[in-house]
Design a protein around this nucleic acid. Structure first.
Length: 261
DNA sequence: ATGTCCACATTTTGTGGA
């Protein structure tokens, strides 16, 4: 079973690229972020034509997350339970083919010393509380999405020089670490370890500005985190950078892993 | 400060967000 996560930066602007990638790569499950539209305006028909069942937690203009699966979607949660007056659509969860899958779009944070940054840290804490509860069932679980945090200095072009900046600050990395310390496995890092050729300069996002893509100045901020029960089934994992090279590309590339039967 | 891309609206140019 192939599971992928992709921040598409508008599902409507990206429709041809996403459809082509689904046809080429054939993921069983795709966790989508930043659809930037409501459920009413979501292009269901095109996705359903490719054999996907769809669950959408949408929002006008901003954010918005979705789950595509070749298998039926059950136990769908729209938003994190108990979210504090959450109006932003940043989380959706479902069970499909015996795996609990979660698509999350962690807030950007804007600037370190801004209320938006604290909102980001609070969101990660709230996400942790929910994931901790779901992990207690000791089942296959995949938490995927755009975390807007680099896990370590090895996940950002510039390395240690970036430490302290947005996406690379100590509080952000501690908040992410506190989430993953519950026993989650970073699928791509597991298969492409730090210190190996395939594990270096491994990015999932490149700035549209300043030739980020052309110079491979990127960050790895999109991850697939696996529960121990899912990690036991991990096959290959990677980042498909091909769609980032296309005209009208998203600034993120799809991140994928394989769960063996 | 800059760069680029997306959605939206007091829309053909500007604004907010990333």
């Amino acid at each position: 079973m192939k599971i992928a996560t992709w921040n598409v930066n508008s599902i409507k602007a990206r429709l041809p690229i996403v459809l082509q990638w689904l046809r080429d790569f054939q993921p069983d499950v795709l966790l989508v972020q930043e659809i930037k539209t409501t459920r009413e305006s979501f292009p269901y028909l095109e996705m359903e034509d490719l054999g996907y069942n769809i669950a959408v937690h949408g929002q006008k203009s901003y954010n918005g997350v979705a789950i595509f699966s070749k298998f039926p979607l059950e136990d769908i949660l729209y938003g994190i339970p108990g979210e504090p007056e959450e109006t932003q659509a940043r989380y959706i969860e479902a069970v499909t083919h015996g795996v609990r899958v979660m698509s999350v779009y962690v807030p950007h944070g804007r600037e370190i010393r801004s209320p938006y940054f604290q909102y980001k840290l609070d969101f990660l804490q709230h996400l942790k509380n929910h994931v901790e509860h779901q992990l207690s069932f000791e089942e296959k679980l995949v938490l995927g999405g755009d975390f807007n945090v680099t896990p370590s200095i090895h996940d950002v072009h510039g390395g240690a020089q970036e430490t302290g900046k947005l996406h690379c600050s100590i509080p952000e990395r501690l908040a992410l670490k506190s989430l993953t310390n519950m026993g989650l496995i970073d699928a791509v890092r597991e298969r492409h370890p730090i210190g190996t050729k395939s594990g270096s300069a491994l990015y999932s996002w490149w700035d549209y500005r300043s030739g980020g893509w052309q110079q491979n100045k990127g960050m790895r901020i999109d991850m697939l985190y696996l529960s121990p029960q899912a990690a036991d089934c991990l096959g290959e994992a990677g980042i498909d950078i091909q769609p980032r090279s296309l005209p009208k590309a998203s600034d993120h590339a799809p991140v994928w892993c394989e769960l063996l039967p």
